[in-house]
């Protein structure tokens, strides 16, 4: 009997609901403030470049004259610094992570691009 201390826990685990999420059949539940990926509302952006200066991974490129805002989501470390420092609050942190891809592509937003 002294050897089966853990038996109760084992039996309980067999009949309990699994502790893991059955991903990918069930979706992953994120918290409200999970830092997944950076998204921009390009219409509000004034191309000041604060986010570019704040980024520790140099993932953001801002062209003031050409009115483009570019991010390399595979360089981004999801620190949230750009979101904090944006004066117009046009950047936000989405809870879903960047989807895996075969190539490290960059996402370019132009001031006239219609938002999807």
């Amino acid at each position: 009997m002294a050897y089966l201390h853990f038996a109760r826990n084992v039996l309980a685990s067999m009949f309990r609901h699994p502790a893991t999420t059955e991903y990918p059949l069930a979706p992953r539940q994120y918290q409200n403030i999970t830092r997944g990926k950076v998204e921009i509302n390009i219409d509000d952006c004034i191309f000041c470049g604060m986010c570019m200066r704040t980024c520790p991974a140099d993932a953001i490129r801002v062209d003031r004259a050409g009115k483009t805002w570019e991010i390399n989501p595979f360089s981004c470390v999801q620190c949230g610094g750009c979101v904090e420092h944006c004066p117009k609050k046009c950047l936000k942190m989405d809870t879903n992570y960047t989807k895996p891809s075969e190539k490290k592509t960059e996402m370019v937003f132009h001031a006239d691009t219609p938002q999807t």
């Binding site: 470049g49 140099d58 004259a65 050409g66």
Partner: peptide, 10 residues
Amino acid sequence: PVRPQAKQPP
């Protein structure tokens, strides 16, 4: 630090 080349550096 290496800043990615923007066309118009601030």
